[in-house]
Simulated scan of single mutants.
Amino acid sequence: MPTGVPMHDAQQQLFDAAERILLRDGPHALTSRAITAEAGVAKGLVHRHFTDFDAFLSELVLDRIARLETQTTGLLDSAGTGTVADNLADALVEMFSPVAVAVVALIIARDNLRTRLREAGTARVPLLGEGAAMIHAYLTAERDLGRLAHDTDVRTLASTLTGAVHLLCTEQETAPPDRTEVHKIVATVIRSA
């Protein structure tokens, strides 16, 4: 893209390009040059909009976390409706989209990125921690409504569900998790609750 031509929503265009690279080539292929080439924009665009490449990556992850916050609102609104297992399975399938799994791999691969994200106030393992918090909040709401036993350890259930489904997703690099498999995990984990 020639210099001086205005771009509409340059940040989102760069994020979309980064996500495509993550899905196709993995976290180690993600460079500012690869992103601008994928987006079809000038080579310096990342550095014009962000102080450095780690700042770009931090914003990419924070954008994914913001999407998760929106999902949390929807999941909490579903408390008391449908079945707990169905609501959780749907939420976990959405939470662990191929892009989200690729972003978690990126976070794990880059020490500086994890440091920046922690400084920004994210969970210890960004995106996974916020996902577990979403599941915890939902399980708490369902327990408060009496749809789970009053002594249910929702924190342990949330961590178990998040970890088990993440592990399932790491085996399926480019496809979303199979809802039937996710539902089976959820039903098994929450059976005693």
Rank of each mutant, 00 (worst) to 15 (best):
R179D: 08
V125M: 11
T36Q: 04
V103H: 00
L161R: 04
V165K: 02
S192L: 14
L92W: 02
A18H: 04
V46L: 07
L106F: 08
L14R: 00
A193P: 11
A10V: 11
A105V: 02
A141L: 07
T152Y: 04
G40Y: 05
P27A: 14
R155I: 08
A158F: 02
E38H: 01
T36S: 05
A109F: 08
E181K: 15
M7Y: 02
H47I: 05
L145W: 12
M7N: 06
A89H: 09
R20W: 00
A175F: 14
R67H: 07
A109S: 15
A132S: 13
G146I: 14
L57G: 07
Q71H: 12
V165G: 03
Q71N: 11
Q12R: 13
R155A: 09
Q12A: 06
R114C: 01
G44S: 12
A102D: 05
A66L: 09
T51N: 12
S97K: 08
L167Q: 11
T180G: 11
G121T: 05
A193L: 03
R110S: 11
A175I: 11
L167E: 13
V84L: 07
D90E: 11
A137M: 01
V154P: 08
A123M: 05
A102I: 03
S97I: 11
A29P: 14
R147V: 08
F53P: 11
R33K: 10
M7Q: 10
